[in-house]
């Protein structure tokens, strides 16, 4: 288009950029990806309501009985209870230990700070399979193997550093002058913590807590090696059902999977509201 054309034409309401080839490719690829993801998830939902589904576009008949069977026969209620129990315990412990550590790492320079930082980074960077088996062996060695305690402990390994690393930027965004002001106006350590720091850090703690919960929910490898039949979480029970060559019926595992999905989606939906620390901070200050 030349300028002369435009001058003659009516005023454009908004200037739109012409989509480029790369943009088209990107959006098509993204569309395919989203379609596969949604297809995979939809198929699980459909299958969980199917009488049988050996193949083809749609199952032969629909039923809701698999959910009842999943609840009663596969120990899913137990797994659900275990998941909730482990999730809450991990969140509480990770926050209790992680928030003070994050605070200190953000605020203070001390000998060995970089070593501690590395210690917090490694469990997040290294995939759980690099240490899951050793950790399980240790748990069995000290007599905790298969217990709920062990499930909680192993899940702390990737989640506690997660809390620390989320809290560090959060604390850094709070000006140290706020703390100095509180001190000058007579707040002791306890008051400083309860009246100033906790309210300011609450969004960060919330974000960290939810991410830890989601992470614990989906943590397969760590829980898998250390849990027993009566202490396994949902995702481990699901793996057991799928990989069982004896044939747990497909729709039954699908019903389990849908239950797991519902629990996870709830976590994700809530966490997306808080997921970026800066966002949460901005919301508070508005």
């Amino acid at each position: 288009m030349t300028t002369a054309d435009i001058a003659a034409g009516p005023p454009p309401r908004t200037r739109r950029e012409r989509p480029t080839l790369t943009a088209v490719i990107t959006w098509v690829a993204a569309g395919c990806f989203v379609a596969v993801i949604l297809g995979v998830l939809a198929s699980v939902v459909v299958q969980s309501f199917a009488t049988t589904w050996r193949g083809g576009w749609w199952p032969a008949g629909l039923t809701a009985t698999w959910y009842g069977r999943a609840w009663s026969s596969t120990g899913m209620s137990q797994a659900l209870a275990n998941t909730a129990q482990a999730g809450v315990a991990v969140v509480v412990i990770a926050l209790l230990a992680g928030v003070p550590a994050g605070y200190l790492l953000a605020r203070r320079a001390f000998p060995g700070r970089s070593v501690v930082m590395l210690l917090m980074l490694l469990p997040i960077i290294l995939p759980p399979m690099t240490y899951a088996v050793q950790l399980a062996a240790l748990m069995y060695r000290v007599g905790l193997g298969g217990s709920m305690t062990a499930v909680v402990l192993v899940n702390l390994v990737p989640t506690l550093p997660l809390v620390v690393l989320i809290m560090v930027p959060f604390v850094e965004q709070i000006s140290p002058e706020v703390e100095n002001a509180a001190r000058v106006f007579g707040a002791n350590n306890l008051r400083l913590f309860s009246r100033v720091l906790v309210p300011l850090l609450l969004p960060g703690m919330l974000a960290a807590g939810i991410l830890v919960l989601v992470r614990t929910l989906g943590a397969f490898e760590l829980t898998f090696f250390v849990s027993a039949a009566d202490t396994q979480t949902l995702v481990v029970a699901l793996f057991g059902a799928i990989s069982d060559p004896g044939g747990v019926p497909g729709p039954l595992t699908a019903a389990m999977a849908v239950t797991y999905m519902l629990v996870a989606v709830l976590g994700l939906a809530v966490s997306l509201r808080f997921v970026t620390p800066s966002q949460a901070i901005r919301q508070r200050h508005r």
């Binding site: 993204a30 998830l41 989606v265």
Partner: peptide, 23 residues
């Protein structure tokens, strides 16, 4: 779009594998 793209991270590979056996 962000939410859908993030779903697999939340669900983990066990659930993705479960759905793939059908799709």
């Amino acid at each position: 779009v962000t939410l859908v793209v993030l779903l697999p991270l939340t669900f983990g590979s066990v659930l993705i594998a479960q759905g793939m056996t059908q799709v």
